[in-house]
């Protein structure tokens, strides 16, 4: 019994230590004020690796999710003779929920895992230690650009995902199923509010961006530097960030759209 309570305490202390380590880690890597002319090329490179290279998967899945939503919505709404409401359903579900969440999940799988593996391999091959030896702060040189690139690119990807999704839904609803063009857009514009829907979606995606890149980069920096450790940390990144995104999404939705 006492041993069980001790093990509980040990795991609690361990969790607390990891949390504290990751907190000081993210603060330290973001607090150093960088020289702009040196930092921008580094950030650019990471924006390319994290953002631009994630574009294909985001665009393709956005297109298909929009098309499927439109098709499903149409088959249900047409029974009630209100198939024009497809536009409204499409825009609200994409902008409020599916856009930020699905993009964050895809981002965790595509960019988060590769960030973890990259930093992990740097640690395993002792590149990070060598940087410290020659007097370069790895937090500022390696970690900070990757964190910032994550913060910037995920909201951008979410916006692109939303627009592509609505475009895909428009294709299916209007061009294929023959919903009237004008009522599709006007229903959408009547139902969607810029501040309440679009801005809240963006705020959500910024929160997700922070969570996913933090988890990904910290898992890479904190892993056991063996090939097995890298594999485990990559899995952890995807699992933890997916769970964190879904849980955080519920809380944010309750705060933003719930009536209390």
């Amino acid at each position: 019994m006492i041993a069980w309570i001790r093990s509980l305490g040990r795991s609690g202390l361990g969790t607390l230590q990891v949390l504290g380590r990751s907190g000081t880690f993210v603060v330290q890597s973001l607090c150093g004020v960088p020289k702009l002319n040196k930092a921008l090329p580094l950030l650019n490179q990471q924006l390319y690796a994290v953002g631009v290279l994630s574009l294909p998967i985001i665009i393709v899945s956005g297109l298909f999710i929009g098309m499927v939503l439109s098709l499903q919505g149409y088959t249900i709404l047409v029974d009630y003779g209100s198939e024009q409401a497809v536009g409204q359903m499409l825009a609200l579900s994409l902008v409020r929920e599916l856009g930020p969440v699905v993009t964050a999940l895809l981002f965790a799988g595509r960019a988060g895992s590769s960030l973890t593996a990259e930093i992990g391999l740097m640690k395993a091959t002792e590149q990070i230690t060598s940087l410290e030896m020659i007097g370069v702060d790895p937090l500022r040189y390696i970690i900070a650009p990757r964190l910032l690139a994550g913060f910037i690119s995920l909201p951008m990807l979410t916006l692109i995902f939303n627009v592509v999704g609505i475009g895909g839904g428009y294709l299916v609803a209007v061009d294929w199923l023959g919903v009237y063009d004008g009522s599709f857009w006007s229903n959408m514009q009547n139902a969607t509010d810029f501040k309440n829907d679009v801005m809240n979606g963006i705020i959500k995606s910024i929160a997700f961006a922070f969570t996913v890149s933090w988890i990904a980069v910290f898992q890479g920096y904190d892993l056991v530097p063996t090939s097995e450790g890298i594999g485990r940390a990559t899995t952890k990144t995807v699992v933890y960030s997916s769970l964190a995104v879904l849980g955080l999404d519920f809380i944010l939705t309750a705060v933003m759209f719930g009536d209390f």
Binding site: Y48, L159, V198
Partner: peptide, 26 residues
């Protein structure tokens, strides 16, 4: 590399404008 990052950022801002003007009817 710089060109593609620039295009990416531009696409993001254009998407925001589309969402604001065309989707939410601002």
């Amino acid at each position: 590399l710089e060109l593609s990052v620039g295009l990416f950022m531009l696409a993001g801002f254009i998407s925001l404008a589309v969402l604001a003007l065309n989707v939410s009817g601002l």
